[in-house]
């Protein structure tokens, strides 16, 4: 049972990471890279590292994507 969850999150991470590289629009690519963080939160939690999972949830899905989006806005404004 837990093996299926692990394999599923691995496959989801790989697919989302590939999609975020291929994606043309930068904002969509940032949102997709949040999905990578989400999948790795599940993996960290299953492998009994709740500390890392908490950090990844706050930084990977929250702060870093917000900072990326704000940097993107800044780039568009300066162009």
């Amino acid at each position: 049972m837990i093996g299926i969850v692990i394999l599923g999150s691995f496959i989801a991470i790989i697919i989302v990471a590939f999609a975020s590289i291929v994606e043309k629009r930068l904002a969509d690519s940032i949102v997709l890279s949040m999905g990578v963080g989400l999948g790795s939160v599940v993996l960290f939690f299953i492998f009994q590292a709740p500390d890392v999972a908490l950090t990844e949830a706050v930084i990977g899905a929250g702060i870093s994507s917000v900072i990326f989006l704000m940097a993107l806005k800044h780039l568009k404004a300066s162009r």
């Binding site: 709740p50 500390d51 908490l54 950090t55 706050v58 930084i59 702060i63």
Partner: peptide, 16 residues
């Protein structure tokens, strides 16, 4: 689970 780095970032997200 948790600690300084995580708690600090959560506080920063409140300010955000």
């Amino acid at each position: 689970p948790g600690g300084g780095f995580q708690g600090g970032v959560i506080v920063a997200s409140a300010f955000l």
